[in-house]
Design a protein around this nucleic acid. Structure first.
Lengths: 205, 205
DNA sequence: CCGATCCGCTGACAAATGTCATCGGGCAGG
DNA sequence: CCTGCCCGATGACATTTGTCAGCGGATCGG
């Protein structure tokens, strides 16, 4: 069959990575870069105008992160498939991404050489999930902590006071301490913050 | 003069960025990539073996960060100039880097197109500092906290207990609390951890 | 030499934190 | 229906943490 080139949009806030990847993809046969953006909001706007076949979005971007942008793009331009690019391979993010209608989940530990085939696969309607992340998500080192414990730990990450966490979660201070305590016990941490960082590292919050 | 190619080593833990930049630099006339590494330790070892003209080091790498690697490289291979690559443009890091004998300080917001000329400049013995970082460093939002306060805050980042911080810093627990307290006052934080995160954000630890 | 400043430590005290027992309501599964 | 689990909360308790005052020693600039 004759290939009409795959039209790709690339969004990443790191100029170096964005330009380098863009240059390499441009060299590839059958792939055409139709635009680049440096944050999620610009990416959504640019997708609306250029209607690319595939939008490659970094997860961590200013103003609007990759998952939010993916949600907006899926709603505004259903014909555009989304590839999410991320630095840290965390199962929780993968779940968020798949719920947002992302077609591929790629980490920055992926070789550039694999990108073109992933883009082609996705543009044909296929899906792709980074192997190590998939394994981690399936091996299901089951998140042992409960939803409210997650809420509390998330608000604990920056070292906030129990009182502040209570306000932010609309809970009583005592309740916050209870959830923090049970989470700490489950995670073997001596402190709210340590528990929060463990949960973060494991991709649970 | 006839150019013998500049021999470059590239160290970054992100495969995607490393390969993409490597590929583009390889296309450049007069630049030869003689090796890549994915952490600081490997980079130091590889520099010792291959003696490149320039080593491009990412700041954030596992096992040994870019500045530590730069120090080791300057000691072991004085003929190799070091270019430090960083995601976040923070004045404190710039100072650390320059003290470590780094020849160039480049952020990942730099265009790939500028890299070759920076590498050439450095290999000729020149220096280069990213403009925005230099400006920020000169505007000198002077770090208000003292050295031991920095030590304590750095160990506070992961939510460790005073007892643990005391052990890690070889200080008495009371002393740790005092330094934490003064730092918190200076930074307007309600918690050790919050102070630590503020100091981190500002590039002071 | 004399402050000034940072260092490291101690002791004391109020407040915050972590732990435990316990309660009631809601909701799912057997 | 009963059991179990999560939710949200309270009260009591020991520990930890943050704050303050003060101690000697080192170092540096005037």
């Amino acid at each position: 069959m004759t290939d009409s080139p795959i039209r790709v949009l690339l969004a990443d806030d790191e100029v170096l990575l964005r330009e380098a990847v863009m240059a390499l993809l441009s060299l590839e046969d059958g792939i055409e870069i139709v635009g680049t953006a440096q944050d999620g909001r610009d990416a959504v706007a640019l997708v609306a105008r250029t209607r690319p076949d595939v939008a490659v979005l970094d997860l961590e971007m200013p103003r609007m992160d990759g998952v939010e942008a993916a949600t907006a793009i899926r709603a505004a331009a259903p014909g555009t498939r989304v590839v999410l690019l991320t630095r840290h391979a965390r199962p929780a993010i993968l779940r968020r991404a798949l719920n947002a209608g992302v077609s591929a989940f790629v980490t920055k530990a992926t070789s550039v050489k694999e990108l073109p085939s992933i883009l082609r696969q996705v543009s044909r309607g296929g899906r792709y999930v980074d192997g190590t992340v998939a394994a981690a998500a399936l091996s299901e080192s089951d998140c042992p902590i409960t939803n409210r414990e997650i809420d509390v730990l998330r608000e604990s990450l920056d070292g906030a006071t129990v009182r502040v966490i209570a306000e932010r979660t609309h809970l009583a201070p005592g309740t916050v301490r209870n959830y923090a305590s049970t989470a700490m016990a489950k995670l073997g941490a001596a402190t709210r913050v340590e528990a929060a960082r463990i949960a973060w590292r494991e991709g649970w919050i």
